[in-house]
């Protein structure tokens, strides 16, 4: 699952909001982990750089896109439909973002 949201220039939550937000994420991921269906995941920092052809380097991961990827998790699901069910209730949905659900291609297929 890849979490995307629109860039919000005025995004500046209070520490309490940040804390509450982290709890929402933890509760949601905890729910998936409680079903034994969590494989791994990472939250991505806002800092980053982009390397383009001819050694052109741009600052920020969101130079020319509307949406940025905030993080991803890998879940264990039999098919896309099951993974879509797991995605329900993801906190990003209440912040105008979306969850992109993709299946991982096995190495030798």
């Amino acid at each position: 699952m890849i979490f995307r949201s629109e860039i919000n220039e005025s995004f500046g939550p209070t520490p309490e909001q940040m804390q509450g937000n982290i709890q929402h994420w933890m509760d949601w991921m905890g729910g998936i982990a409680a079903q034994g269906k969590m494989a791994s995941g990472n939250r991505l920092s806002f800092e980053g750089k982009i390397l383009k052809p001819n050694n052109v380097i741009a600052d920020g991961p969101y130079a020319e896109v509307k949406e940025i990827i905030g993080g991803y998790i890998v879940v264990k699901a039999i098919n896309i439909d099951e993974a879509m069910t797991l995605a329900e209730g993801c906190p990003i949905l209440s912040h105008g973002g979306n969850v992109e659900v993709r299946s991982i291609v096995a190495v030798n297929s």
Binding site: M29, G30, A33, M38
Partner: peptide, 10 residues
Amino acid sequence: ILQAYNQLLL
């Protein structure tokens, strides 16, 4: 306690 269990499961 809930947060600790969430982390534990992860």
